[in-house]
Amino acid sequence: MKFYEILEQHKSQIAEKWLKAVIETYPGDAGKFLFENKNQFGNPIGYTFSKRLPEILDELINPTEPQKLNIAIDDLMKIRAVQEFTPSEAVGFFFLLKKIIRKEYHHDENAQMLFREVLEFESRIDQAVSLAFDIYVGLKEKIYEIKAGETKAQYGKMVERLNKKYGD
């Protein structure tokens, strides 16, 4: 059996473990709520992660179109980029996937034999991290743009009035 087949077979368990590990990056009692409440609107963080992580995993195992990965990662990074995480913590949840796979499947006899595939899969994760980092930086830039626009809108009509009255 090839390594990707092993992953494919255990996909849903891996995704579940990954989700649990990501949720554990939130402090204390929050995890229980974020993990257990499945309401799309009552628990948007939990919902978004439980929807997007399996999609990302799926794309990492069977890449179809890059845009899919992009959309899924963007959704997650939007959340992490404004929460109390350092930049490395914000993107670091991909490494948790490596950890899970190493722990569970490296010891699989077949996986040991298919070392090249293992390395290849891990580099796909690394690529996803790079993508997440680009998105993270893009979002931070966007935040600064929005902030500048907000200040302008707050007094927008006043400035317009002054310009009209006293010239540009």
């Binding site: 939130y26 402090p27 204390g28 009692d29 929050a30 974020l34 009552g42 628990n43 948007p44 963080i45 929460q83 109390e84």
Partner: peptide, 8 residues
């Protein structure tokens, strides 16, 4: 704030 931050 809790729902959006995960800060207990």
């Amino acid at each position: 704030f809790f729902i959006g931050s995960g800060d207990p």
